[in-house]
Design a protein around this nucleic acid. Sequence first.
DNA 1: TCTTGACTTAGAGCGCACTCTAGATTCTAG
DNA 2: CTAGAATCTAGAGTGCGCTCTAAGTCAAGA
Lengths: 153, 153
Amino acid sequence: MNVDRQSGQDLDAPTAGPGDGVSIAEAARLSGVSVHTLRYYERSGMMPTTPARTSGGTRRYRKAELEWIHTCTKLRSLGMSTDLIRRYVDLVRAGPGNEADRLHLLEAQRERVLAQQAQLSMDLEMINGKIQTYRERLEQGSADGIWSVPREP
Amino acid sequence: MNVDRQSGQDLDAPTAGPGDGVSIAEAARLSGVSVHTLRYYERSGMMPTTPARTSGGTRRYRKAELEWIHTCTKLRSLGMSTDLIRRYVDLVRAGPGNEADRLHLLEAQRERVLAQQAQLSMDLEMINGKIQTYRERLEQGSADGIWSVPREP
DNA sequence: TCTTGACTTAGAGCGCACTCTAGATTCTAG
DNA sequence: CTAGAATCTAGAGTGCGCTCTAAGTCAAGA
């Protein structure tokens, strides 16, 4: 059985009984995002499946939701916009048959990330150059001419 | 003589005579940022030196400003906040003697970029895995079980 | 049962980095 | 000299991705 060590809840339970899944606070702790953000993701259509509810209406996050949140945070940290994630989620919710579209969204994001990595590496050379220059000048006791303001004669 | 090919202006001229430097539109074209952004950078204290002005008050960008804008856009694309850039610019404007502080700002930014690159690479593995899975399933004509919504029995 | 803390919703607020506007002034080609 | 394009300033507006609030409901231990 697949059980959360903290809450002792069965993450795979098929129904929304009172003891199934974990609370939103626990889901937040497990995924590293705030409860506010979890609710925001849900109401803005960024969850392929929404957490089950107890009879009182409180959310119970299970394996599917927790795994998606994990994926979702990775897509976000790869720079994928909430709008694109919504589009991806819409495809998933539409069910089988649009896998090529989903693939295309992911591949497009990968291309953006690769481009960004290349850009970062290029711009890093610049900052490394400046760091190197500062270090050399500091060894000599002077940093003139890097970005000092020229004095009027 | 250092001359802009487009405007034919002397970028090194020491005084703010009417024909020295380039207009803000030309500076924008050369640096790839908008004229709005150039004015914003200036008034929010992100320019170590401000462009000279004609007698009528219009800006004339010269080599120093154009080079800084170039550096500044790279720092921005490395994710350095405008606040940190302002701090760096303040140090530069304060003149020689704080090179260690400047160096520290740049090194801290480099550390953040290196961490971000590592994170991007890690998260990219996830997206690559999903892309790979989708491709395989598409070859088989099915993408069930990646992020499909389970049907109720 | 009671109490305390966690949870609910809809909607407002925030921080960042621009981006645009209005209305006046300046520049430049003819 | 003149017309039209470019520029000026201070300040307002925008889009993104959260983040927080208010006013109430629910859950769980003593």
